[in-house]
Simulated scan of single mutants.
Amino acid sequence: MYNRQVPYCPYYMNQDAYHSFNTKWRIEAQKFAAFSGVVTRIEDFSSSPRDISGGCYKLMSLESKDMGPVNFVISPGTYFVNHEVVEVGDKVTGFYDANAPAILIYPPQYPAIVMAKDTEYENVIVDYFDNQLINSTRNLKLNISPSTDVILTNDQPFNRYPGDRNLIVVYGPTTKSIPAQTTPYKIIVLC
Rank of each mutant, 00 (worst) to 15 (best):
Y2W: 06
N3V: 10
N3T: 11
N3I: 13
P7F: 01
Y8N: 02
C9F: 01
C9E: 03
P10T: 00
Y12D: 03
Q15T: 11
Y18H: 12
S20P: 01
T23Y: 09
K24D: 14
W25C: 08
W25G: 06
R26N: 15
E28H: 09
E28T: 13
A29K: 13
A29P: 04
K31N: 08
A33N: 14
A33V: 06
A34P: 00
A34W: 00
A34G: 05
F35S: 08
V38T: 15
T40G: 04
T40S: 15
E43H: 06
E43M: 09
E43T: 13
D44E: 11
F45K: 13
S48H: 09
R50H: 15
R50T: 15
I52P: 14
S53L: 10
S53K: 04
G54A: 11
G55L: 06
C56S: 11
L59W: 04
L62E: 12
L62G: 12
E63T: 08
K65D: 11
M67W: 07
G68I: 04
V70S: 07
N71S: 11
F72W: 00
P76M: 01
P76V: 01
T78V: 06
Y79L: 07
Y79D: 03
N82K: 12
V85R: 15
V88F: 01
G89W: 00
G89H: 02
D90Y: 09
K91W: 09
K91L: 14
V92D: 00
G94R: 03
F95V: 08
Y96A: 11
D97F: 06
A98L: 15
A102D: 03
A102V: 14
I103T: 11
I103E: 13
L104H: 08
I105Q: 15
P107N: 05
P107L: 05
P108D: 07
Q109N: 08
Y110Q: 02
Y110V: 10
P111K: 10
A112K: 05
A112L: 14
V114Q: 05
M115I: 11
K117C: 10
K117V: 11
D118P: 03
D118E: 15
T119Q: 14
E120C: 06
Y121W: 06
E122N: 12
N123A: 04
D127R: 10
Y128S: 10
F129A: 04
N131I: 14
L133D: 02
I134R: 14
I134G: 08
N135R: 08
N139K: 08
L142S: 05
S145E: 12
S145N: 05
P146G: 00
P146I: 00
S147F: 07
T148A: 00
T148K: 07
D149F: 11
D149R: 12
D155G: 09
Q156K: 14
P157H: 05
P162C: 01
R165P: 05
I168G: 05
I168N: 03
V169S: 01
V169A: 02
Y171C: 00
G172K: 14
P173I: 07
S177F: 03
P179Y: 03
P179T: 03
Q181M: 12
Q181V: 05
Q181P: 04
Q181W: 01
Q181C: 06
T182G: 03
T182K: 02
T183A: 09
K186Q: 07
L190R: 12
C191Q: 09
C191H: 09
